[in-house]
Design a protein around this nucleic acid. Structure first.
Lengths: 224, 224
DNA sequence: AGCGATCCTGAATTGGTGTTCAGTTCTTTC
DNA sequence: GAAAGAACTGAACACCAATTCAGGATCGCT
């Protein structure tokens, strides 16, 4: 008598799985990674604590997958924005703006994904995701360099620095707390993008133009 | 019969206090904030666990003071370097270089102080220290702006971004791991300083000059 | 329906770390 | 030198959250 999962069951299992992940994401968005605890997450997902362990071997695995998930979304958004730009410099500006906007739209979540403390095994996953995003930025910087728009430079280090600047200025603990006003938000994104572009060597005047072009299409309507 | 602390006793108590703080600092330098646990720290300081509580009301207080301590040192170093510079732009370059070098000399410690997870009450202290350092950088940026060397800008946001860039590029998880070689180290400091200066609007050519001047006096002999 | 396989539950277990405190040792004072 | 006060010790306690697991519920097959 062989037990075989029916379509419906498979779907239900998948749904539960994503429900748990979604619950974890919500928890992280509200209270950072520290708030991603098995019991609360299970409760959010309308599941018992033990059930979580039928879908994820451990809390670390759950968080790793959460990070991978969020990063995948972000990476896709960056690529989309950059690929839609008319040239390498615009692409870089678009990529940077996208990161800024994304990070601002869920500051707590971003903080948790980027910087909050986790176990060693989670760090591996986090690192990989981060590398991908940094790699994408690096690519765009490299393209701009090859196009002669930027001076030659260590693109990897530059990419790290850019991301660091964005994160610290926008979601770090010193980030201005008055970013609820959409206008201020827009200003912050513009300012930081400008800084980032100048950092890699875009001339001030040209950078200002790129920023304006990049910010226009980006949706800066962000929920808490 | 009134007990009055003798000089010797006062000194011994003070010595113990600093021994505990030093032990905490060492622990943090080795394994990050997570390694700052009462039992190990007490053991390092040649003291029983309970004794720690005669000097610090709680672990949070201990860590808060540790953070304040380290930050005070760093702030002093920044001021010293900047004040010794001949002009506002040089001062900014010197300040940035100093941060870079300091952060590199104890990466784990810096990471713990800057980004590792801690209780809410500790965060307040950490925030204050960080604000001071960011404030100092902000001052230097402001001075350079007033001197006409930089375009007008949001100095607070710029300061945050600069620090974020430095930290991420030098001690963040994506930081190159080959920084044991002093030459590479020097390169990294130069590169990042250059990025930082350009970010706030120093022209590329001029920035390169400032970097060289700033890096020369900075000791880039750093232990693990 | 009936039976075994799978899945779910949630209370109990586990592990690790901050904190306490009764007992001990050292210090001051007379 | 002895009494009283302070400081120190370290094992015991408390707390919190991850993880487990025996029992109950559900599902797939005949």
């Amino acid at each position: 008598m062989i037990y075989r999962r029916t379509h419906q069951v498979v779907k239900r299992l998948a749904a539960r799985r994503s429900a748990i992940l979604a619950a974890a994401r919500d928890a992280a968005a509200e209270g950072g990674m520290a708030a991603v605890q098995i019991a609360p997450v299970a409760s959010r997902a309308n599941v018992a604590a033990g059930t979580v362990y039928r879908y994820f071997p451990s809390k670390s695995d759950l968080i790793s997958e959460l990070i991978a998930d969020v990063s995948r979304d972000e990476l896709a958004a960056i690529r989309r924005a950059a690929d839609a730009a008319p040239g390498p410099s615009s692409a870089l500006a678009a990529a940077v703006t996208t990161v800024a906007v994304h990070v601002l739209s869920h500051r707590k979540l971003a903080w948790g994904i980027l910087a909050e403390p986790v176990d060693v095994d989670v760090n591996a996953s986090r690192l990989a995701s981060r590398r991908e995003i940094a790699g994408e930025i690096e690519l765009r910087i490299g393209a701009a360099v090859r196009a002669g728009h930027l001076p030659a430079q260590d693109t990897a280090l530059a990419a790290c620095a850019l991301l660091g600047a964005l994160h610290e200025a926008l979601v770090g603990p010193l980030a201005p707390d008055n970013l609820d006003d959409p206008a201020k938000l827009r200003d912050a994104v513009q300012t930081v993008t400008l800084l980032a572009l100048r950092a890699v060597g875009v001339m001030d005047a040209r950078a200002r133009g790129l920023v304006v072009q990049a910010v226009l299409p980006a949706k800066i309507l962000v929920g808490a």
